[in-house]
Design a protein around this nucleic acid. Structure first.
Length: 279
DNA sequence: CTGTAATCCTGCGAGC
DNA sequence: TGCTCGCAGGATTACA
């Protein structure tokens, strides 16, 4: 569920609620997440204070005053919120950090448990872990490496956009939105794009992601921000989830096709398959 | 190198 | 009302 705009919204929401707060208790659930939580971590976190809340791709990094970092991925249904400790605890709550004063708690909830929460000893270990798999952030994407990654590949555009090593943070929704904005077919091969199409695609990715961040992300089903608020950008989507509805450019119905293993929504009329031609 | 499918999970809507 | 089926924002791995 959460792609970059959703994760960014969570981080922005959490920052004022978390930075400066000290961990008073850690409670771990029984069920396993995608990556195991080390039982030894909990006790060592007591008394530590959050200093920084930031994001890299779809990953959340919370820095602590002893240099360690909590690294969180929300998977498909992860929810990471600071909640009033007096509020009833929901089901599927897997991790809880009680905050100093006892009035609030940081909660990790995840229905499908595809997400993870891990503790790293320092920044360099986080860089080693994330750096290897993540490309640049989708804002002002460096033009040359992007063009080389796209035009140097026979893979289809949908697979390329979902590849976190090319651009970090794009997922199924915003890949479809960017391809729609750039008028490109999800099955087109990277090497078939002209340079101007690559530029359009690069700019479309940035524009779509920026707008979605402004809209606090898209809530399709489970997503909520760091304070529990839903997103708004689902109302602005032009392709994703609009199967059968009229294309906002030409009026032809939006089609859904399975590409790169994911449902892909596009306009068969204005998103061309070939490099420059019409259809 | 590619693409496809399966895997990890739970929940929900469609169709019968 | 209740069943089964397919599908869902992600990431990784196995296999053809």
């Amino acid at each position: 569920m959460p792609e970059l705009p959703e994760v960014e919204t969570v981080v922005r929401d959490l920052r004022p609620l978390l930075v400066g707060r000290t961990i008073a208790g850690v409670v771990v659930g029984e069920r396993k997440l995608r990556r195991p939580w080390n039982e030894a971590w909990g006790p060592t976190l007591i008394g530590r204070t959050f200093t920084v809340a930031r994001r890299r791709g779809k990953w959340i990094v919370l820095e602590l005053d002893d240099d360690r970092r909590l690294v969180v991925h929300l998977g498909m249904t992860g929810q990471f919120t600071v909640a009033d400790a007096a509020l009833a605890r929901p089901d599927h709550l897997h991790l809880r950090f009680d905050l100093d004063g006892g009035d609030a708690e940081l909660r990790y909830r995840d229905i499908r448990r595809f997400g993870s929460v891990e503790l790293f000893p320092d920044e360099s270990s986080v860089v080693e872990y994330l750096g290897a798999k993540l490309g640049p952030e989708p804002f002002n994407i460096p033009a040359k490496p992007f063009a080389e990654a796209i035009q140097g590949s026979t893979r289809n555009l949908k697979a390329l956009l979902l590849d976190q090593g090319i651009v970090a943070g794009v997922g199924n929704i915003y890949a479809d939105e960017a391809l729609f904005a750039a008028k490109l077919h999800p099955k087109s091969r990277g090497r078939d794009l002209t340079s101007s199409q690559v530029k359009k695609l690069r700019e479309a990715i940035s524009a779509v992601i920026e707008k979605a961040v402004q809209g606090r992300g898209s809530t399709i089903r489970d997503y909520v921000g760091g304070s529990g608020l839903r997103g708004e950008y689902q109302h602005e989507l032009t392709a994703y989830g609009r199967t059968g509805e009229p294309c906002l450019r030409c009026g032809k119905p939006i089609t859904m096709l399975r590409v790169a293993g994911r449902s892909s929504h596009f306009c068969p009329s204005c998103q061309t398959t070939r490099a420059s031609g019409k259809a």
